[in-house]
Simulated assay, not measured.
Amino acid sequence: MVRIIHPVNILITGATGFVGTHLCEYLLSQGHEIHGTYIYPQEVERFPEHLRGNITLHSCDLSEMEQVKHMLCDTSYDQVYNLAAISSVHQSWSKGQELVLKVNLYGWLNLLEGLHACSPNARILMVSSGEVYGIVPPEKQPTTESQPLRPINPYADSKAAQEMFSYQYIHRYQSQVVIVRPFNHTGPRQSPDFVCSDFARQIAEIEAGRRDPIISVGNLEARRDFSDVRDIVRAYALALKHCPIGAPINVASGSAHSIQHVLDTLLSFSRVPIEVRRDPKRMRPSDTALMLGDAALLRQYTGWKPEIPLEETLASVLEYWRTQIDGKQ
């Protein structure tokens, strides 16, 4: 007898973004029906060709409640992954905290309100960040979920606020919100606003003769817990299915690498010699020396562990940018 499994109906906000495209790929491979949101037409133009015919995309700005209601009332969702956000510390400083709160916090509240009305039984993934811990003393790292929240930048503030408001909906409406706190992650398609992608793009442009053989860098001493985005989206899917409601869960590799190590690894893949120069403009207003996460709870609930080594991840980021640069020649 053939067992027929009903596919899960899933909504991914910010589906056309970096993590969103990888999550679409992973969930499609599991046989689910995927809907996604975007804001600007150029996001759809950049959406990978192999996903366009398999994902139902909806234009929706989560900070506009009427758009959220219109988007949600047509379909009932079993699972929701909220990835729509201003998603970097650098952007949160440059765009200003008022816009960050409008997009990240009020967009999240609108989504919760809309789901309460239209899909009250959906399991909802709230993607927070390891940035909410702020500066954690090295002797207290790897950082566990019991560490107090002390965010030190607008992005982290907005994520901590999202977490806090989630409990209101969990308590008042029994909303099924699962909270994850991912640490740094990278991979193909990531914006050059992030350090690994920034270095890789510069190298690819130098190789293609589109800039002088000089790479500009900021703080190379900071150490970060890097994961591959493909490991991250697998963790998100497992966490939403298996982790308890309202209990924050770290998503981290458990290993810290310096930005210098990231740079040296990428330079080792370069096809041409490159000079390294420090650029004061690339220094953040606020930075932490070490960010290292403890993902023991995630392993306990789901069995997840990272599978892709950092060197393989960085090679794939550089190859992505080589393809992008070659396509523009």
Rank of each mutant, 00 (worst) to 15 (best):
P309S: 12
L115F: 06
V229A: 10
A295N: 11
E205R: 14
V80R: 04
Y77A: 05
P182F: 02
Q202P: 10
V68C: 08
H171V: 10
K328A: 14
I249E: 00
Q300W: 03
V2M: 12
T21E: 07
Y106D: 14
S94H: 13
A84H: 09
D78F: 05
V317M: 03
L297Q: 13
G36K: 02
M291C: 08
V272Y: 01
L112T: 05
Q97K: 13
A117N: 09
A222L: 14
Y155M: 08
L292G: 03
P213F: 05
P188S: 09
D74E: 13
Y38K: 05
K328V: 04
W93D: 03
A256Y: 00
T143M: 03
P48H: 05
M126T: 10
K305L: 11
A15L: 06
C118H: 15
I232L: 13
V132K: 01
L267N: 04
R181D: 01
G114A: 13
D74H: 13
V272G: 06
R172I: 09
A222M: 14
E307M: 09
Q202K: 11
T144K: 11
V217Y: 02
L310C: 12
E66L: 11
V195S: 02
N9F: 00
L28Y: 06
F18V: 04
S286P: 00
L314R: 02
G31H: 05
T144S: 15
L266F: 05
N219A: 12
R46C: 03
R271A: 14
Y81F: 15
P151Q: 12
M283V: 13
L51P: 06
L62T: 08
L112Y: 04
Q260R: 15
M1P: 09
L72K: 11
L238F: 05
Y26S: 02
P182I: 02
K140G: 03
G36S: 08
A289P: 05
A156M: 10
A84V: 11
L314F: 07
E221T: 15
A235S: 10
V132F: 04
S227M: 15
S197Y: 03
R271T: 10
G218H: 08
A252T: 05
Q174S: 15
K69D: 14
S76H: 07
N153P: 07
R211V: 11
V80T: 11
I86W: 01
M71D: 02
H32C: 08
F47Q: 01
I170A: 11
E163A: 11
L263C: 14
I308P: 04
A315L: 12
E319I: 00
E139R: 10
L51G: 06
L109A: 09
R123L: 02
E139W: 08
V272H: 06
T323C: 05
Q168K: 08
S286R: 12
G20R: 07
Q91M: 12
I5A: 12
C24T: 09
K159D: 07
W93T: 05
V177C: 04
A295G: 07
W321V: 03
P192N: 12
S286C: 11
E45S: 12
E49S: 13
H32K: 01
